[in-house]
Design a protein around this nucleic acid. Structure first.
Lengths: 81, 81, 81, 81
DNA sequence: CTGCCATTTTACCGGC
DNA sequence: GCCGGTAAAATGGCAG
């Protein structure tokens, strides 16, 4: 620890506050996102499916196929084919 | 592409892209936060402790909000709303 | 509210405690579940896929097909076919 | 069914079933909780307020745990572990 | 039926 | 590079 009861306290406080500020901004963006979903829902779109789409677009095709293949394998092992 | 199976593709795409844009901004803020922690660490602070401090301060805030919410509820219940 | 400062306080406390007891038991079961997943992971299974299997088994076949169809529709509308 | 594509079906099935059993028990406890709230409501208590009280008491407990964890961390950081 | 809240799940980050 | 733990997101459930 960098010092106790000296300048370090101020520095620590400064770091903490910068972090808290950044987290507030993040929270605001999350709120915006929720609002967009909500608006979409109001126009008849299915939010759950939209989220899935966003997730899929984030993954590349290889990852997607791999995951699906693995799921199929497990289903077969359980006789859920 | 105006409609596919009753889904307004352009509108959907617009929503999806707004959401993706917001998520990118959020990711950028997360990166900033990480950088602050990293800088603090470089100056001799313990990141794990810092994170716990941030969490604790947040919980305190939340507690306070909860208490106020509870008081409001009681007021409502007593017809003082 | 059923009474203030009388017997109602005791009754309220009793309800709260019963609830807290039940929630503790639930938390214990959650811990057990996590442990099973963990053990499975130790034996080479993929936890994420297992969770998906459990979810799928909870849904009936009709729901499952419906969801998949909707997702395909959205993908097409976005040209992600 | 011993193995499908390298997946030990019986073992997997056993894990899945243990998990499903635990989740059923949890669901039963949730039902019990709901019943308690319902009974309380029938005796004139405000469920929403009760839930908030439960939440608040839990947050207090969490805060205390957090504080202790923070103290431990400080001790470690100071070589008093 | 809608919105809210709790829980569960996923993804990330730091440590080993 | 992997694992564990921690924070964020998402799903499901309940109350109004």
């Amino acid at each position: 620890m960098a010092e106790v009861g000296g300048i370090a306290g101020d520095q620590l406080r400064s770091y903490i506050e910068r972090i808290e500020r950044l987290e507030e901004e993040k929270a605001a963006l999350s709120a915006d996102t929720r609002e967009v979903y909500s608006e979409a829902k109001g126009n008849g779109f299915d939010v759950k499916i939209m989220r899935q789409i966003v997730r899929l677009r984030k993954m590349d095709t290889d990852d997607r196929s791999e995951l699906e293949a693995l799921l199929d394998l497990y289903k077969q092992a359980l006789g859920m084919g």
